[in-house]
Design a protein around this nucleic acid. Structure first.
Length: 271
DNA sequence: AAAAGCCCCTGGATGC
DNA sequence: TGCATCCAGGGGCTTT
C-alpha cells in the first residue's frame, strides 16, 4: 500500500518521538517477508538514534547496527505509550523507554531486518539497486532523462520498477503520468524531452503534495499516530475507472500492466 | 542489461 | 448463508 509519501509521513510521525529511546523488549509475531536476521534479545539496551528513509524503506539507526523496515502492501506502524493490546496482525513489537513501536501487517509482505550497517550484504542487496530519490536535490532532469534513455518498456512500468527513481508506486505513477499528459503504455525511451520534463516535475509535485496531504488512505493506511491521509481525495485518475476526467470529461480507462492496474484519460494522455 | 512472469499472504467485495 | 473468484498501495527472484 504505502508508496513514498505514506512511508515519509509515517517517518515524520514518529522519528522525533523515538529518537534517543533505549530498546527494552522486542517481540516477533508471525514470520514476515524475511527473518529479522538477529536474535531479538540482542537488540535490548541499544538506542534508536534516528529514523531515515530510502525509497520505501525506513532505516532505524541504532547505537549499533540498523533496522530496515518495509511496509509491503498492507503494513503500517504505530508508535506510542498507550497502544492497544497486541492483535492478530501485529508481527513486530518493540518496547522502548519512549514508547512502543509496532508493525501491523495483515498480508505480511512487509519486513523488519537487522543489518550491521550500510555495507552489510543484506543492506546492499535490498538498498543497493535503488534508483534516485525523487525529492532530493540530486534528482535532476538531466539524470532522469539519462535514466529513461535505454528503457524501452512502458513508462508506467519503468517508474514502478524503482531502479531509475524510487518511491513511485501504483497510485502515484498513474497520477504523475496523467498530470504530465503521457500515455502509461508509451515506451520510456521514446518520450520527447519536453514531455520528460513535464513528467519530472509531475513526479516531484505529486509526491510532495501527497506528503502534505498526509499520504493516501485507500483502505487502511495510517501514520504512527493513527491518523489517516487524505490524498486519495486529490487522485485524478487512480481508482476512477469509468468516471469522467476532471479536465475533459472523457471516461477514465483502466488497463492491466504487469499484473497491476493502470488508470489514464485516453483524451488527455494521447501519447 | 533489461524485460516479463511468478510468487509471497490475508481480507474485502462481488457474483452465483 | 455459503462458496468461488478476483482484486489490493510491493518487490525480490527466476527465466527469457
Amino acid at each position: 500500500m504505502p508508496e513514498l509519501p505514506e512511508v515519509e509521513v509515517t517517518r515524520l510521525s514518529f522519528a522525533d518521538r523515538i529518537a534517543g529511546a533505549r530498546i527494552l523488549k522486542v517481540h516477533m509475531g508471525k514470520p514476515l517477508r524475511w527473518p529479522l536476521q538477529c536474535d531479538p534479545e540482542s537488540l535490548i539496551g541499544r538506542q534508536v538514534i534516528a529514523v531515515r528513509r530510502r525509497g520505501k524503506y525506513l532505516i532505524l539507526d541504532l547505537s549499533v547496527g540498523q533496522l530496515l523496515v518495509h511496509l509491503g502492501m498492507s503494513g503500517s506502524l504505530s508508535f506510542g505509550t498507550k497502544l492497544p493490546p497486541s492483535g492478530l496482525h501485529d508481527h513486530f513489537d518493540m518496547q522502548t523507554t519512549q514508547g512502543r513501536l509496532r508493525l501491523n501487517d495483515p498480508r505480511r509482505f512487509g519486513a523488519v531486518v537487522y543489518v550491521t550497517g550500510d555495507s552489510d550484504p543484506t543492506s546492499a542487496k535490498l538498498l543497493g539497486k535503488l534508483g534516485m530519490e525523487p525529492l532530493a536535490d540530486d534528482f535532476t532532469l538531466q539524470r532522469f532523462e539519462l535514466g529513461l534513455k535505454h528503457r524501452k518498456a512502458p513508462i508506467k512500468q519503468v517508474l514502478l520498477a524503482g531502479n531509475v527513481v524510487v518511491g513511485v508506486g501504483n497510485i502515484y505513477a498513474s497520477e504523475a503520468l496523467f498530470r504530465a499528459g503521457i500515455r502509461p503504455t508509451r515506451s520510456a525511451s521514446t518520450i520527447g524531452k519536453q514531455r520528460v520534463a513535464s513528467l519530472y516535475g509531475a513526479i516531484r509535485s505529486v509526491l510532495a503534495q501527497a506528503v502534505q496531504a498526509g499520504g493516501a488512505t485507500l483502505r487502511d493506511f495510517s501514520n504512527a499516530h493513527g491518523e489517516h491521509g487524505h490524498f486519495q481525495m486529490q487522485a485524478q485518475v487512480y481508482g476512477r475507472a469509468q468516471e469522467p476526467c476532471v479536465v475533459c470529461g472523457t471516461r477514465i480507462r483502466a488497463i492491466r500492466q504487469g499484473q497491476r492496474s493502470t488508470f489514464f484519460c485516453p483524451s488527455c494522455q494521447k501519447a
